[in-house]
């Protein structure tokens, strides 16, 4: 297992390097950060001074070389716009995004698996049809539309929940969290549901398909014939066997949630990383974009690693060394 993990980490270094090159080339192809950052009414002398200061007058390879040298020392550079370390700007916002992502994951697992199991066991029952209908809806509606509709319904018309923002936070081990206050939870409900809706639909469908496949298998028939309680059949024999694909998808989806919660965060004015990265892209604040994407790459690698380890725990036939 150690060899496997080391090899994975080495791969990630290469990936991160490739990513940073791509981002540099990408930003270069889009436009000149100096043009978007500098005040529209700045004089030419001011412009030149800033371009020189950010090193934007140097050839791209020189800019990249400087970035790499600093990055090796752990310095990802200062944001062009805020003049603060890019990493600091990002890490300030991680807790909000993570909390929202975990809340969405929680909803997905807690609702998705039981509903999927039910729909798999009783495919022709009316509730199953409703569940599947709603999940088809969840697949097909755009997140931003659903988000706005939720805001209109529950905040504007019914007035049950706040329309946006994060609400009151309390510090837990020095990290601000909102799930410990009622105000915070109220603020979190709509964005978390909005963020989880697609994943929920996906997990319902996966669980249902897996269940239907497994209940036809011989060992389930045998267990039934043996007179095992159906709760035991479901929880032990069915669930365990359908959990592997679900774990994979959940892992990937969790990563996607953190990396691309942008739309939900924008609609609900949730102070997470998504809003930061969108703003940074529109002003071509390169240090922030690079640091963010490199962090996301590392995060995906870590998630995949954890998923692989969970596999081996769920299914003893899986050997990590062989898979690597």
């Amino acid at each position: 297992m150690t060899v496997f993990i080391i090899r994975r980490l080495l791969q990630s270094v290469v990936l991160v390097l490739v990513m940073s090159v791509l981002v540099f080339l990408g930003v270069y192809a889009i436009g000149n950060p100096a043009d978007t950052l500098i005040a529209p009414d700045a004089t030419e002398a001011e412009r030149i001074a800033i371009v020189e200061h950010f090193g934007l007058d140097k050839p791209l390879y020189a800019q990249y070389g400087k970035f790499l040298a600093n990055a090796l020392k752990g310095d990802m550079g200062n944001s062009f716009k805020f003049n603060e370390p890019a990493l600091k700007l990002i890490t300030e916002r991680i807790p909000a995004t993570l909390e929202l992502a975990f809340a969405a994951l929680f909803i997905t697992v807690l609702l998705g698996i039981p509903l999927g199991l039910y729909a798999g066991f009783k495919p022709s029952a009316l509730p199953s049809k409703i569940i599947m209908g709603v999940s088809a809806f969840g697949f097909s509606v755009p997140v931003f539309w659903l988000g706005l509709m939720m805001v209109m319904t529950f905040a504007v018309i019914l007035g049950w929940l706040p329309a946006s923002g994060r609400g009151k936070t309390v510090d837990l081990f020095g990290i601000p969290v909102s799930f410990l206050t009622w105000d915070g939870i109220q603020h979190m409900i709509l964005p978390a549901i909005n963020l989880s809706f697609f994943k929920l639909s996906l997990i319902i469908r996966l669980t249902r398909a897996g269940t239907q496949e497994v209940i036809r298998s011989d060992y389930i028939k045998y267990a039934k014939a043996k007179g095992l309680k159906s709760s035991r059949i479901i929880l032990v024999h069915v669930l365990k066997n359908i959990l592997i694909p679900i774990t994979t998808i959940l892992g990937l989806e969790f990563g996607r949630t953190i990396a691309f919660a942008t739309v939900t965060e924008t609609i609900f004015a949730w102070p997470g990383m998504g809003k930061l990265i969108i703003d940074s892209i529109s002003t071509l604040d390169r240090p922030v974009i690079v640091a963010y994407l490199m962090m996301i790459v590392i995060m995906f690698i870590m998630i995949n690693l954890i998923v692989d380890i969970i596999y081996s725990l769920l299914d003893p036939r899986v050997r990590l060394e062989e898979r690597a």
Binding site: V156, T266, D279
Partner: peptide, 16 residues
């Protein structure tokens, strides 16, 4: 800060 236009209007209408 509520950068999204419709969200800002919704926040006003919801009394936030």
């Amino acid at each position: 800060p509520i950068t999204n236009d419709p969200s800002r209007v919704a926040a006003l209408l919801a009394g936030d």
